[in-house]
């Protein structure tokens, strides 16, 4: 036995198996596609909202038919669940604070539209970055910058309407990146863990 066992690292490595299959990435990508569809077809977006169930159903099906038969089932320690709950509370509080700051920046006190734009960029960085940090979901750091880039792209499209008129199309970029990454990870996962 020449390998050391660090229980903290072991717990973290066990937790990270949640993101190993790439299904979470695909689900996030589908959420962005649904968001884009709702934005493009805004006249029927009320009905399209139901499509948000698709990523949830996809993840449920993937867990049942792909993940569990291959890597089994685990119930995480209550310490981890408590930690996740605290992280969720922190991220939600951050989100509320940032929404308030953004709303405040929209008011007459801060007039510059660039200031508003910068604040929303900061919101994206903080929220997505904290999700990546707290959940040990390293790929989320890359997605944070892709989402940020997509948001900047919406600003550019809005300023220069031409070939692409709808700003929502910009969010197809993170969707494509997430789904492509997810498929690569899923393929690797299926190869590494064949059905026994």
């Amino acid at each position: 036995m020449n390998q050391s066992i660090n229980l903290n690292d072991l717990e973290k490595a066990t937790w990270v198996t949640v993101f190993q299959s790439g299904c979470v990435d695909i689900m996030m990508g589908v959420i962005f596609i649904v968001a884009t569809l709702c934005h493009i077809f805004d006249d029927i977006s009320y009905y399209l909202m139901a499509l948000y169930l698709v990523p949830a159903l996809l993840l449920f099906a993937a867990k049942r038919y792909i993940i569990i038969p291959r890597i089994g089932l685990v119930k995480f320690h209550r310490r981890r669940r408590k930690k996740n709950l605290i992280y969720f509370a922190i991220v939600t509080t951050l989100l509320v604070i940032l929404v308030l700051i953004t709303a405040f920046s929209n008011s007459s006190i801060i007039q510059s539209k660039y200031a508003n734009f910068a604040i929303i960029c900061g919101d994206i960085l903080i929220i997505c970055g904290s999700i990546a940090f707290f959940l040990n979901f390293n790929r989320m750091y890359i997605y944070t910058f892709v989402i940020l880039f997509a948001f900047i792209l919406t600003g550019i499209i809005r300023e220069n309407p031409g070939f692409i008129s709808r700003t929502g199309y910009a969010y197809l970029l993170p969707a494509i990146v997430m789904i492509a990454t997810g498929i690569v990870y899923l393929r690797r996962f299926i190869k590494t863990y064949p059905l026994s």
Partner: peptide, 25 residues
Amino acid sequence: EPARLKILAQLYVVENADVIFLMRR
């Protein structure tokens, strides 16, 4: 025993796990 130590260490950091999960880990 190394194998049993691995099993116990893995079970120590989770609440419960099934056989497939332990085999993989």
